[in-house]
Each structure stands twice: as C-alpha cells, then as structure tokens.
C-alpha cells in the first residue's frame, strides 16, 4: 500500500533522511521508531506531499506522490505532528469544513463529523472552541479529522506525544479499532510501548537511516534477547571484570546512565553468575534495548 524506495531528504547541509526504503502492506500497521531528529517526521511529511523529496520515490496505493500529490492526498488521512486545529471555528466546524475541503458535500461532511466525534467520545464537545479542549482531546480530534473521509491509508505523526498515560491509552484503543477495520497505518513514535502495542512491523530509525526492521518481538529476540540483564555497580574494577567476561561473546554491554545493560545477540539470557561487586537483575527485553543495542544510545532523550 505504501512503498518508499531509496528516499533522501536534504535541508542544506543536513541529511534529514538518508536513503531509506520500506514497504507497508495493505491492512498493516507499520511504525517508525526513533528518537527526535531521526527523520520520522520528515519522512511522513514527504509521504503526505507536504515536503518535496530530494531523491527516491514514494508511492501510496500505487500512486506516485511526486507526480500526483493531489491524488495521493485523496486516499490519505494525515495526522500531523501539531494538531493544526482552527481556533476560529468550533470543534464541529473544524471537522465539517475539513470534510468539505476534502470533497464531501456539506451535508455528508456534517454527518461524518458527528460520527467520528462520537467514535472518539467527543460528541458533547461539538460546539466547543478548540482551545477549550484538553491535550488528549485535541489529539483525538486531529485523528478523527484524518478519518472523516474513511481513507484506506492513514499516516500518524507521533499520535500520543505529550499526552498523559490515560489519554494515551484511549488513543491506543481507538487506533486498535481502526486497525481492525482494515485501515493501513503508518505511524511514527518515540515511545517503545506504543510501537510494541500497535505495530505489526516497525523500522528502527536513527540519523535518517533505518537500522533494522521487523516485527517487534522478532527485533527484540534478534538484538536484545528475551531477557536482558541490568547491572548496577559502583566499582570500576567490577565493571572491568564484566567487560572482560563479555568480550568475544554474543553479549553486549551498554553503559548508559547509572545502569549498565547487557543485551544478547543469540536470544539467550546472559549468564553473569560469579561476578563480585555487582547487582544483577534480569527483565524482559524490549524495543528500548533494541535501540540501545543498535546505536549504543538510549531511545528517550527526555
């Protein structure tokens, strides 16, 4: 449904997107996971024809974005990073006028606006000014706006960034419903729980490149292991001993922050028995560990 081939984007000297390729199948939810500045937003903007490509190609539903941007936007629902609501209009007017601009008749647009508001639990806010909404409501309004025309493909740029956990859960629930309805979704996120919960497959991005892609579980197995070890120590010598122990093994030590993390490249739990002066705990591997294993850095820069 979406095919990105050899995509590059340069802003002057900055290589925001540096030769990425991926494909999203029909009905699939595909995630771009990476820290701020990884090139996720730029990729999504190019896909929505909000940004010209430097080189490479993007097709959506077989339509070339560069040549037929207008046609692509007809089948694409877009949730931009900023909500982009119109403060001069009410919640309902925001939706119905957007629907009209999309090509619905005024009557249809109003009907659909009420439908999506109801679906997102915002129907009692229809007459409100958008600036009266909470952050979570604004985000849900942005998503409902993208669904007005029932597009077969939806692009969501960081759908839950800045939301409290409750609002985030609510958005996730609704995205899950959307997914069950067969909508093809491309989303970006820097929350690994979000990527793990919603995405069938995802690409780990950093510095404009895709480091690896696959199903969340498969990526964890491959790069972090089912269980990772977290090592806490205050002793330099103990750390040195650990480093030596792990040399030439499929285990990797990542010293980031107060805690050292040991990931595994063969899916097996690292054996750290017999080390002195360290406290070792094991926990389930996750996408954070995958990112750590691939880049040596933490995903979150918060």
């Amino acid at each position: 449904m979406i095919r990105v081939t050899n995509l590059y984007k340069r802003f002057g000297d900055i290589h925001a997107v540096n030769g990425i390729s991926f494909e999203v199948k029909k009905g699939e939810t595909y995630g771009l996971l990476g820290p701020n500045g990884a090139g996720k937003t730029t990729t999504m903007r190019m896909l929505s024809a909000l940004s010209p490509l430097t080189s490479g190609s993007i097709t959506v539903g077989g339509i070339d974005v560069t040549k037929h941007g207008r046609e692509v936007r007809k089948i694409l629902g877009v949730v931009t990073q900023h909500d982009g609501h119109d403060s001069g209009l009410t919640v309902l007017q925001n939706l119905s006028l957007h629907g009209y601009l999309e090509g619905l008749s005024l009557k249809q647009a109003k009907v659909r606006a009420v439908e999506v508001l109801t679906f997102f639990g915002l129907e009692d806010r229809a007459g409100a000014n958008v600036y009266e909404l909470s952050g979570g409501m604004k985000r849900r309004l942005a998503i409902s706006r993208a669904l007005l025309t029932q597009p077969p493909v939806v692009v969501l740029d960081e759908p839950t960034t800045g939301l409290d956990p409750q609002s985030r859960n609510r958005v996730w629930e609704q995205l899950a419903v959307m997914k069950r309805a067969g909508v093809t979704v491309l989303m970006s996120t820097h929350y690994m729980e979000e990527a793990a919960t919603l995405c069938d497959r995802l690409a780990i991005m950093d510095h404009g490149r895709i480091l690896d892609e696959g199903a969340p579980d498969a990526l964890v197995d491959q790069h972090a292991g089912e269980e990772v070890a977290q090592v806490r120590t205050e002793s330099e010598t103990a750390l040195a001993a650990l480093r030596e122990r792990l040399a030439d093994t499929p285990y990797r030590l990542h010293e980031v922050g107060a805690m050292a993390t040991v990931t595994s490249e063969n899916g097996k739990r690292p054996d750290l028995t017999g080390l002195t002066g360290v406290r070792v705990t094991y926990r389930q591997g996750n996408l954070e560990d995958v990112f750590l294993a691939l880049t040596g850095r933490e995903l979150r820069d918060e």
Partner: peptide, 14 residues
C-alpha cells in the same frame, strides 16, 4: 503559525 494551512494542505488542495 498555528499550522492551519498545514492541516488544509493535507486535503487535495494546492
């Protein structure tokens, strides 16, 4: 400044 144009540009408008 408030990304209102950006939202409008996600529809089939030039």
């Amino acid at each position: 400044d408030n990304q209102i144009y950006e939202t409008q540009l996600t529809t089939p408008i030039t």
